[in-house]
Amino acid sequence: MNNNGSFVISLDFELLWGVFDKVDWREKKEYFQNTRKVIPEILKLFEKYEISCTWAIVGMLFNESWDEWNQNIPATLPEYENNKLSAYSYGSSIQSKETEELCFAPDLIRQIKETPGQEIGTHSYSHYYCLEPGQTLESFRADLLQSKEMAEKMGVNLRSLVFPRNQFNKNYLNACEDFGLQTVRTNPDIWYWRNTQKESLQQKIFRTGDAYLGKNNKSYNDIPELIPGITGQKASRLLRPSGGKIFLDKKRLQRIRSEMSKAAKNKEIYHLWWHPHNFGGNPAKNLKDLELILRHFKTCKNKFGFESLNMENISKKRG
């Protein structure tokens, strides 16, 4: 077994489904159009630098149209106490030709599938919130089943899960194992990443500040088995998008490269994640920043044997 350090990337691919309860789609149309354009560019960079990645995809994106979406509503739906969180209520209210490009992306999923080293995982079918009042294990199982069926139609067997909004629920891991999932991303082991359902302003401030300052302690050594058949992979760092401030952007990228170097030297795992739509506000600058990170990976690979693995690969190797 190669015991060198490992660089893991996971992307939460959601389009509008990830933020529909927070934004007006009319004001974000260009933002998500940019997101659609940037994904092929990310794939080109991954291919250029031989990067493996797990794309945790909201299952609703597999649909071709609203007609198909209406046909694929599970029999059991989450009954959130806050109905504004329901993707089904929201989707039923915005159906038009104009919104389809914001909610469906089978063409992009096929591009991901055809690119070497890319794993298609799941971000649940409906961007399901596993800690919100009103949802149940029964509706979560129905959601996973729908994700599994949609992926299988495209020839994909789901093996990795990322919980939407990082609402990790250990009580649901047995259901994950029942549907063939083998590994899940978990939150950083830091106080301001806990309880993401009811996070405080202080947590948000510390999470933002952590992107620029603090100790380099984000890499780790093990992929623990959370329950028999399911391993957990701690996220190391959220790649925040460019904020337009030269000094802060420089500090943000320096921090990531420093953490990558530490992981490579110490033969540890460094797990970077973000949402593709995070690049939608300033695509050119964010792609440039990503290439700087990938160039640094290549340096670490040549110097220390650092390797790029997706979630499924590293779970099998180090679990």
Rank of each mutant, 00 (worst) to 15 (best):
I246H: 10
K148M: 14
N70G: 04
S236I: 03
E259M: 04
R36K: 11
N266M: 14
K265L: 14
I94S: 13
Q203D: 14
A75G: 12
G18M: 09
K170R: 06
S124L: 04
Y192Q: 00
V8F: 10
F168T: 03
N174A: 05
R165I: 04
Q33D: 11
H127V: 08
Q33M: 07
T231R: 05
Q111S: 09
M154G: 13
K28C: 09
L108C: 01
F168G: 02
E27Y: 10
K262A: 11
I73H: 06
Q95S: 04
D24N: 15
D21Y: 10
W193R: 00
E41S: 14
R194G: 00
N313A: 14
Y80K: 01
N63D: 13
P78M: 10
Q203T: 13
W274Y: 05
L16P: 00
K29R: 10
W17D: 03
T186D: 12
P224S: 10
F7M: 07
P283R: 09
L16M: 05
Q167L: 11
I190A: 02
K265H: 11
K265C: 07
S93T: 13
K265R: 14
I256R: 00
G229E: 05
E177V: 15
Y31K: 02
E307T: 08
T76A: 14
A175T: 10
N3C: 14
L16A: 10
S126L: 08
S93Q: 04
K153A: 01
Y88M: 06
R110N: 03
Q135S: 13
K316W: 11
K97C: 01
K317R: 13
K29P: 06
R207P: 02
G5A: 07
F62Y: 12
N72W: 08
F304E: 05
Y192S: 02
N187K: 01
K113S: 13
I269C: 04
E30K: 14
G18P: 13
W69M: 04
S261L: 15
C130G: 02
L11Y: 06
D143I: 07
G319P: 11
N4M: 12
E30T: 15
E81C: 01
E312P: 05
E149I: 14
N221R: 14
N221S: 15
D249K: 06
Q202S: 15
N313W: 09
K245P: 05
L201E: 08
N3I: 15
A87F: 09
L272R: 03
W273S: 00
E27A: 12
P40D: 07
D21I: 05
L181A: 03
L248H: 09
I227G: 03
I230D: 06
E79H: 12
L287S: 00
H275R: 09
W25R: 00
K245L: 13
W193Y: 01
E14V: 10
T231V: 10
D178T: 06
N216S: 12
E132D: 12
T76N: 13
F279C: 07
P276G: 06
V58W: 06
S236E: 11
H277F: 14
D178M: 05
M1L: 11
I73K: 03
L248I: 11
R185A: 12
P241T: 02
L201G: 04
M60Y: 02
W17N: 12
Y212D: 01
Y125A: 02
N195G: 14
K22H: 12
Y88Q: 09
K97L: 03
G244I: 04
L201Y: 10
F297V: 04
